[in-house]
Structure formats: C-alpha cells, structure tokens
Design a binder for these strands. Structure first.
Lengths: 119, 119
DNA sequence: TGGTATAGTATGAAAAAAGGTACTGTAACG
DNA sequence: CGTTACAGTACCTTTTTTCATACTATACCA
C-alpha cells in the first residue's frame, strides 16, 4: 500500500481488476451464472490451471468472488460473483467500451499509415 | 495483443492506465495545467527519473499525453493531457471512487477483526 | 570555481508476475 | 483394466516490471 492516499485508491481499485486474466474472469462471472473451475478454463483457453487458481483466490480474498465447494467425487466447485463484486460492473463496462474504441482508433491509424506508405 | 477480442479490449484499456505510476500521472495532468518533468517528479515523490520517463513515453505514444519541448538551456519540457486523454477522465474518476470505498471497507473490516480479537 | 537546475540516458540488479510441466485421489465410462 | 473428468498443488523457469546508481550537457548564481 502506498503512502500517497490518492495513489492508494487507484492502487486498491486496480489491484482488484488487474492481472492478466482478472478482468475476463470477472466479465464471465458478471454474466450471472456460477461457473465451475473447468468451465472457466474452457472460457479462457490460454490460461493455465495455476494462474486460474491464483487469480480466483485473490478475487475470493477481496470478496469479489464466492467459492462454493460441493463435497462430491469427482469434486465440484462453483465460482460466482458476489453482490460486492457486482459493484465493479460499471467500471468494467466503461473499460470495455473505452478499450474497444481505443483498439478501433489504433486500427484506423495503422490503416491510414499503410495507405500513405503505398501512395 | 490477445486473440480473444473481449480480453483484447480490456487489455487495451488497462495498458493505458496500468503501470505503477500511470494513473497518478494522468490524474495530475487531468487537473488541467501542463507540468514540467521535474514538477511531475515532485508530485510523485517516490518515482525514479527512469520510470517517469518510460511512463510518459508510453502515454505519449498512445496520444494520451502531449510533450512540448522548448529549445532552451537548461531544457524545458511540458507535459499536458490531450483531448483524447481527457476521455479517460470518467474511468479514472470511477476507479478512484471505487478504490476509496474499497479501502474504507477493508479498514472497517480490520477494525472489526481487532475488536473481536480483544473480546 | 564550484554548486544547482534542467531533462533526460545507460547499465545492471532486484522484485513481481506469469508460464510450464508433472503430479494427486477418486469415480464413472467403455 | 485403461481413460477421462474433476479441482487443484508443487516445483521450477521465464518474462516483465520496477529500482538504484551513475552519467550527460549547458546555463546561471554566488
């Protein structure tokens, strides 16, 4: 935690969102349906078991995600978004939209550059 | 850049914001006044020259920040937020607010824990 | 003449994040 | 009887990010 209170708030918020896979995990869980460990794995094709576990544990620790173990064999564990986690929804939505516009902007710019290069 | 388009959008947005000092740099520049390199350094007491340079270059590359060099000696360089950079303002504002609430929430929880421990 | 301020760059080290592979136990399926 | 699915853990390596320190050139001030 930083000393500077303003930074501290950014850091606290970003820690919850940042991590190579966290936004996607939250995004999928925000769809509403609880998801099992391997369902999430299939939704995030390139994630390793290790990274999925680590990120889920962090999200759980911050009470953004809830983990429910069904004592069965083979095991069943369901992850779902918490009420508190839902409060992140507008932020993720804004990020998603801004990101889409940003990608499009870059794409257009590159297209323009290629255009002038072939002139 | 990821293949998954949804992730890609999050990544694009977060790349612009994330970095240990980026939100703070943007935050200060969003106050409106252009700032010189060393003014920013003084506002971010713990940043190294190297990190400030690197982050400013990245922000410049994404056209979120504008860099103006005044050919003087000793040198004078002014950094300011671009119009495009201003479009990040609502996101940073949301992050800032959510972060503040998150910090407060944790604080209360810890206080509660200490309370029950001494019971 | 020596110190200060400006805006950096260069180099190497340390820390943090992410990835890769192998392994666990049990049940159901074929 | 071998394979698959489940939800992980253990261990080690690689990549990325950040940090620390020294260095540059020039002008001004005392």
């Amino acid at each position: 935690m930083q000393k500077n209170p303003v930074q501290c708030q950014f850091v606290a918020a970003l820690d919850s969102i940042v991590g190579k896979w966290k936004p996607m995990i939250l995004y999928h869980l925000l769809q509403g349906e609880p998801l099992r460990f391997n369902e999430l794995r299939r939704l995030l094709p390139d994630i390793t078991q290790r990274m999925l576990t680590l990120h889920l544990r962090e999200l759980e620790e911050e009470e953004l995600v809830k983990r429910v173990i069904y004592p069965q064999i083979p095991p069943k564990v369901e992850y779902s978004i918490t009420e508190y986690g839902k409060s992140l929804s507008p932020i993720l939505e804004s990020l998603h939209q801004w990101g889409a516009a940003h990608v499009e902007r870059k794409r257009l710019k590159e297209a323009k550059n290629e255009q002038t290069e072939t002139d």
